[in-house]
Amino acid sequence: MTRATTIPDTVMVHVPFRVKKRGGRKEIRLPEGAPSRPELDNALVKALARAFRWERMMRAGEVATIAELAEREKIAPSYMTRVLRLTLLSPDIVEAIMDGRQGPDVTLARVLEPLPFAWAEHAARFD
């Protein structure tokens, strides 16, 4: 049995994409309309997990103060305070981050900045 066509040694594949800087790192962006899979921002997810874990520890009475918790976790109290503010993010934004659906403007640096009081203002800030 023989093949009528030969298989080439080299195959050329063209994949259109562009490189964009986001939060100090480079990301590959697909062209508009290309199907894509949401990608989690690991730094954001980790910060959210830490914030909710620390809040739970404080509510459970494992620690009495942020300073005590910061010493226990070996983290600067000022950083811990900024991360703990993530527990105040609107549930819609937290869900979007956990699903990888957050917009390109939702970076760890931006969410660590002081937040507006109303959840409706959070959505406007990160749109």
Rank of each mutant, 00 (worst) to 15 (best):
T2P: 08
R3C: 13
A4F: 07
T6Q: 12
P8H: 03
D9H: 13
T10F: 09
T10E: 13
V11Y: 11
M12I: 15
V13C: 10
K21N: 13
G24Y: 00
R25Q: 11
I28L: 09
L30Y: 09
L30C: 05
G33D: 01
A34L: 02
P35A: 09
P35L: 09
R37T: 12
P38M: 01
P38G: 00
L40A: 03
L40P: 00
D41R: 10
L44R: 00
L44G: 01
V45S: 02
K46A: 14
A47G: 04
L48H: 01
R50M: 12
R50A: 11
A51I: 06
F52W: 07
R53G: 09
R53E: 13
W54T: 03
E55T: 02
R56D: 10
A60Y: 00
G61E: 00
G61A: 02
V63A: 08
A64E: 12
T65P: 04
I66P: 05
A67M: 07
L69A: 11
L69Q: 09
L69E: 02
A70H: 04
I75N: 03
M80S: 09
R82I: 04
V83H: 06
R85P: 02
L86T: 06
L86G: 06
T87I: 08
L88G: 12
I93T: 08
V94F: 04
I97Q: 03
D99K: 15
D99C: 12
R101G: 06
Q102K: 09
P104K: 15
D105N: 15
L108F: 04
L108C: 01
R110Q: 15
R110V: 05
E113A: 14
E113W: 06
E121G: 03
A123T: 10
A124G: 00
